[in-house]
Design a protein around this nucleic acid. Structure first.
Length: 435
RNA sequence: GGCCGCGUAGCUCAGCUGGUAGAGCAGGUGACUGUUAAUCACCGGGUCACAGGUUCGAGUCCUGUCGCGGUCGCCA
């Protein structure tokens, strides 16, 4: 292994045909036909077929080839040459070959089908496979696009606390001891803090992990997931939905433009993603219930919509849709009462197409001190814990709105994966805490 | 938590109305100078999740326990 040889990344090789380069990576596949042998090497940027011909390498390198196993990390040096049969159009004619780190023969992931439970037990290795690499690169693209979208529009990113006193929504909380302060809870949302920050900066967003201790066992739920929560001062519910529409369209088109290779690896139907541009239909909850009843659903006005109801509504559209203005009882205490129909609140759920369900929940926030205080009491929540939150309405209250986008659900939809657990590097679910 | 389903070789699975455990892949040895999950020959590999029951006999039927998956509810 020469330290003077420049180390090149596989993705850059098409520009280096004819040059001699050194690559470091992991053995992904091995084939041998006696005096000629093939190594498929992975370096995190792509795959490269390395051709080892006995007559063309030194004896030590040929013997080294014989010891190679799957996932051995190696250094190879050789000439880059064009070969139309290869992905990326190049292969490497090896001149020397050396092992960095050996890999025992019992490497568990084989180039074949495995069960999901087995793969999740070996998530640290599963992550190395082409499909998983593609998903994580798309996830990264979406994360970067989120930051770009908000930065270009003058939003400030605000990091909200993960350890909190009891505050937020009603669903299950993870708790831990916190010195002499009693229990601390892992945050289920950064929204309330986001509202405080909106009065400081005007337009903000949060980007962080959130935790739900519900015993949910579905393809759409994790106990730890990442959520993006914008909050905008002086935006009403209509401006809020416009922002959501622009935001989601931007994310999808960004992935379509920049991650075509990864979408191809996932065999995603890109034509379905290209249609994701505003406007998205805005359906009032009351109209949605009427439509559902016509379609044979048993749903009654006042009830929340079930997963089956959501699918029935989405099936008529190729873009995401909004369901707006749910009954007060079905939604959180902080949502603003609808002046046009006080039985309902100014809120919206965005449902993704193709059965991926709710990816956004948003609302205009209650900005009236007395109404909010009343709602907190109505829900049986401890008033004293919400003192600072009520203060936001006492000192210069302001119309404001925001929403929460579930990152993994968005990644799952854009990638077309059947289960959300593939869309986060190390998923946390009810029955899975490791690796 | 409710309902449905699964647990057999390292992995993926088959195993019928109960009759003494199978395949492919992976692994080992050998052959092969253009392979793309290479091919060919030969070889090793099992507490059928666990406990109890029915039976002459249980991987198979029954009960319980454990583990896991799907779905619903909750939500992003």
């Amino acid at each position: 292994m020469s330290s003077t040889e420049p180390v090149i990344r596989i993705a850059d090789l098409p520009d280096r045909v004819g040059q001699t380069v050194t690559i470091r990576g992991w053995v992904t596949h091995l084939r041998s036909s006696g005096k000629i042998a093939f190594i498929v090497l992975r370096d995190g940027t792509g795959l490269l077929q390395c051709v080892v011909v006995k007559k063309e390498v030194d004896e030590a390198s040929w013997e080294t080839f014989g010891t190679l196993t799957l996932e051995t990390s190696i250094t190879v040096t050789g000439a880059v040459r064009a070969d139309a049969r290869q992905v990326g159009g190049v292969e490497l004619g090896v001149t020397t070959l050396a092992v960095i780190g050996a890999s025992p023969l019992d490497y568990p992931i084989q180039p074949k089908e495995h069960g999901v439970d087995f793969l999740l037990d070996h998530r640290h290795f599963w992550l190395r496979t082409p499909r998983q690499v593609a998903i994580m690169r798309i996830r990264n693209e979406i994360e970067q696009a989120i930051h770009d979208f908000f930065y270009e529009r003058g939003f400030i990113r605000v990091d909200t606390p993960i350890l909190t006193a009891a505050i937020g929504e009603r669903s299950g909380l993870f708790s831990t001891e916190y010195f002499d302060e009693g229990n601390a809870y892992l945050a289920q949302t950064g929204q309330l803090y986001g509202e405080a920050a909106a009065a400081a900066f005007g337009k903000i967003y949060t980007f962080g992990p959130t935790f739900r201790a519900e015993k949910s066992k579905t393809r759409r739920h994790l106990t730890e997931f990442w959520m993006i929560e914008p909050e905008v001062a002086f935006n009403d519910t209509h401006a809020n939905m416009q922002l959501q529409e622009d935001f989601v369209s931007f994310l999808v088109q960004r992935v379509v433009e920049r991650r075509t290779a990864e979408l191809a690896e996932l065999e995603r139907d890109i034509s379905k993603l290209e249609k994701i541009r505003g406007p998205f239909p805005r359906i009032d909850y009351t109209d949605a219930v009427a439509t559902l009843q016509k379609k044979g659903s048993a749903v009654q006005w006042g009830e929340d919509l079930g997963a089956e109801d959501e699918s029935l509504l989405v099936e008529d559209y190729e873009t995401p849709i909004f369901i707006c203005n749910y009954p007060k009882e079905a939604k959180a205490f902080y949502m603003k009462e609808n002046p046009a129909d006080p039985r309902t609140v100014l809120c919206d759920d965005m449902l993704a197409p193709e059965g991926y369900g709710e990816i956004i929940g948003g609302s205009q926030r209650e900005d009236d001190y007395d109404k909010l205080r009343h709602r907190i009491q109505e829900e049986g929540l401890p008033l004293d814990a919400y003192g600072w939150y009520l203060d936001l309405r006492k000192y210069g209250t302001f119309v404001h709105s925001g929403f929460g986008l579930g990152l993994e659900r968005t990644v799952a939809w854009i990638c077309g994966t059947p289960h959300i657990r593939e869309c986060i590097p190390f998923p946390r679910m009810m029955h899975r805490l490791r690796p």
